[in-house]
Amino acid sequence: MAKQYKPRSHEPVVWLLFAAGGMAAAMLMPALVLITGIAAPLGLLAEDSLNYERVIGMLGSPVGKLVAFPFISLLFWHAMHRIFHGLHDLGIHAGLGYYRVLCYGFALLATLLTAGILFLI
């Protein structure tokens, strides 16, 4: 008796957010490490280029918000999706429904907070 494969999984919704977050991290992180971790401490940047007023001004502009929102929020989806499936790999399956709500709920909360904070800047 052949096994029947249904119903359709809803995983693509979170998987696409996870994939986008992975892409965002891969593009953003090396640049951030270079600027804040290497260039700034070594004094390679122009003076005051990373001061509070400048950075908040950049994030407060419409373009800054438009760029910062997906880059910040998608990383949460990426991390929580990886943690959720990591639990399964570590042998924690009982109550996956509960962990699912916890993991993706946190990502959703972080996304809303990101949007709220960027809106208030």
Partner: peptide, 16 residues
């Protein structure tokens, strides 16, 4: 596609 789309299809893989 139903086999691919199912939870027991590609979505049970965590790319080990």
């Amino acid at each position: 596609m139903p086999m691919i789309n199912a939870e027991d299809g590609v979505w049970s893989c965590t790319l080990v």
